[in-house]
Amino acid sequence: MKDWPLYEIFIRSKNGLNHKHVGSLHAADAHMAIQNARDVYTRRNEGVSIWVVESNNITASNPDENEALFDPAEDKIYRHPTFYELPDEVKHM
């Protein structure tokens, strides 16, 4: 069981919302990962849908490149849609 791969777990808390990353766990295969996720992450009614992805399949950005990747956005205030008023009917923004 020590050889089991790591899976990243995403839970949709209710219909209409996105799946959100909640953590990771070990499992022999994707099917078992869903069962484990059900038992570990949804036992208090947290979800209506589960996605699992083997952690190996996720490519992450390199923290060393953070300056080049993210800092340039800091002074571009005009990219934020804060100059509009949101109607009440638009939820989850």
Binding site: M1, W4, L25, H26, A27, Q35, N36, D39, V40
Partner: peptide
């Protein structure tokens, strides 16, 4: 349990 995930599954 052999691993945390199965421990909690059986307890459930």
């Amino acid at each position: 349990g052999p691993v945390l995930e199965q421990d909690i599954a059986l307890t459930n």
